[in-house]
């Protein structure tokens, strides 16, 4: 019987670790998924010739957890031959020519201002708020707990942007 007590002692020591299984670092999965989609938008949309040289600029208005993922992407990848540059704008005044402009949820109220400012550019405006898809180019929405995207064909064409058929197949068309 004394031996059994000795055995249990081992387990007490070992059990100290049992509840130490911990959450993986606070990784924002939603942000990574959006970044993966954004990179695909860059590849599956045809920009006018004048946008096919120089850097491929992705602007973000305000703070977004997607930014960090885009920065990582910019270090690793190119859009065809173009180097990706992620530019953060803190107000619509700062916005300059870019291929894409992401408006995080908190910046949605600035959508009209941004649209006006970018009306003469071939800029894809990306939003992430339910119901706003009619006003932006691509809008991230949640369907069945998954990230999906609405694509506003008219908006894209007014900015001389041509989505590929593959992109159209997967998008919720508006």
């Amino acid at each position: 019987m004394g031996c059994c007590k000795k055995g249990l002692k081992y387990f007490v020591i070992a059990l100290f670790f049992v509840q130490s299984t911990s959450f993986t670092d606070q990784f924002n999965t939603n942000a990574k998924i959006k970044a993966l989609y954004i990179y695909n938008f860059a590849k599956y949309i045809e920009w006018p010739e004048s946008y096919k040289s120089g850097d491929f600029v992705i602007g973000i208005l305000g703070n977004s957890p997607v930014e960090q993922n885009l920065q990582t992407m910019a270090k690793l990848k190119k859009v065809f031959n173009q180097t990706i540059r992620v530019k953060k704008f803190s107000s619509p005044d700062q916005i300059s020519k870019c291929h894409m402009l992401m408006l995080p949820n908190a910046s949605t109220s600035l959508l009209s201002t941004c649209s006006k400012k970018l009306s003469s550019y071939s800029t894809l405006i990306i939003t992430e708020k339910a119901g706003i898809g009619v006003k932006s180019g691509i809008n991230f929405v949640v369907v069945d707990r998954k990230q999906k995207f609405e694509l506003n064909k008219q908006e894209l064409s007014s900015h001389k942007l041509t989505p590929s058929s593959n992109l159209l197949k997967l998008a919720i068309l508006i």
């Binding site: 998924i33 695909n40 690793l76 990848k77 998954k146 593959n166």
Partner: peptide, 9 residues
């Protein structure tokens, strides 16, 4: 990041 759009889904 090289995953195509179908694979992301």
């Amino acid at each position: 990041f090289d995953l195509d759009i179908v694979a992301v889904g």
